[in-house]
């Protein structure tokens, strides 16, 4: 990687960091319509379940995208419906509204196509910590890895694919009424 490439990569990293933090702010501020606008129309949003399997059987650790039952396997249309449900004001699982913070860290650029300088698509890995506190003392802490594919559309980054790998087997939260 020559000097120019390294600078391009650095600038892209800065842009991606800002983008992911901005996205987290939108979610935590409950600006769901603005959040939906960050999703590409063909977005795939997938959160598999995870099994305890032997070390030589790891291909069965995750339920399969597009084939198995998962926690989420969504497109923009169903994510929009989920937002609409929260916005009805009578979605009791989110009414009263939860206090949620998304902590995003360990952001790494994995790949850019066709180049760091002019990326049409960027693959990004990160960790998430989603903290939810609701009603009085009810608290959930969900931690895991995320793999995002971002696409540049008319100059703006859009989320094209999101894989959410939660570090839990039996889900310890009674529901998943929020986004990752």
């Amino acid at each position: 990687m020559d000097g120019n490439e390294r600078i391009s990569r650095l600038l892209l990293k800065q842009e991606v960091d800002e983008f992911l933090y901005y996205e987290a702010d939108l979610l935590d501020a409950r600006r769901y319509d603005d959040w939906l606008a960050l999703l590409a129309d063909d977005v795939r949003y997938w959160m598999p379940m995870r099994r305890n399997v032997k070390v030589d059987d790891l291909e069965r650790e995750f339920t399969r995208e597009g084939r198995d039952i998962s926690w989420f396997d969504e497109g923009k249309q169903t994510l929009t419906r989920r937002v609409r449900q929260i916005q009805t004001g009578i979605h009791w699982a989110e009414e009263p509204v939860s206090r949620i913070s998304h902590v995003i860290s360990n952001i790494r650029l994995l790949e850019a196509n066709p180049s760091w300088a002019e990326p049409a698509e960027v693959a990004v890995g990160c960790r998430f910590l989603v903290y939810r506190n609701r009603v009085e003392t009810e608290t959930d802490i969900l931690v895991g890895k995320r793999e995002d594919l971002l696409r540049r559309v008319e100059g703006e980054l859009k989320i094209t694919r999101r894989r959410i790998l939660l570090d839990q087997n039996v889900l310890l939260s009674k529901n998943l009424t929020f986004f990752f």
Binding site: M49, D68, I69, V170, L171, L172, S173, K174
Partner: peptide
Amino acid sequence: LSGIQKWRVP
């Protein structure tokens, strides 16, 4: 379908 959902409800 493959994938058994398991979760806790208080």
